[in-house]
Computed example of a mutant assay.
Amino acid sequence: MADYKGILEITRPPASADVERGRIRQFAQAIGAQDPVHHDVEAARAAGHPDLLAPPTFVFGLELEQSDVFDILAGFGIDISQVLHGEQKFRYFAPVYAGDQVTFTSSFVDAYSKAGGALDFFVRRTEVTRGEEKVAELESVTVVKNGSAT
């Protein structure tokens, strides 16, 4: 592995995003989520929700908009054309609704190599909160191909 140890020491300020009805509807439509709690406010309220319910992976899309992961990797001399998405994990603790403001706090928590250094892996964890309440934890693995790795 190239000298990427400093990546684990990077601390980024938290970033916030507003959860909007239109964005929930658009996302739900894009992923084929047809449950009316994602599209119709009255249906959501009738189901016991305060507003439209965000589909589970919705917060990941919001987090991507706030992410500077590619800038960070490029800052370590990594050729972004050699970057692959390796893995994604989600843990949910509470639902997210239209009208919420969520905050993303991200950090790299691990870096390692495989295949004799041909592949480097960076694990990034993001805590998603609404006020003081943790609503989700996202984890992604970014893979960097080194040299002739395929």
Rank of each mutant, 00 (worst) to 15 (best):
A2L: 11
G61T: 12
A111N: 13
G117N: 12
D18E: 13
I78G: 00
P13N: 10
P13V: 05
P14A: 05
V37A: 08
I24Y: 08
E139V: 05
A15D: 14
Q29E: 14
F108Y: 00
L64N: 14
A44K: 07
A74V: 05
D120P: 04
F122E: 04
D110E: 04
R21V: 00
F90L: 11
G77H: 04
L73Q: 02
I80N: 03
D68V: 13
A28S: 02
L52P: 01
D79Y: 11
V59S: 09
Y112T: 09
L8M: 07
G116A: 08
A136V: 14
R130K: 01
Q29I: 12
E132S: 13
T150H: 15
D120Q: 01
I31R: 13
T126C: 05
V102E: 00
F108W: 00
S107W: 03
D100R: 11
L84Y: 13
F27S: 11
S148R: 15
L62S: 09
R12M: 05
A33D: 10
E133N: 13
A17W: 06
Q34K: 15
L62H: 08
Q88V: 07
E65T: 11
D51P: 07
M1C: 10
Q82Y: 15
Q101H: 12
A33Q: 07
V141G: 09
F70H: 15
E139I: 06
G86F: 07
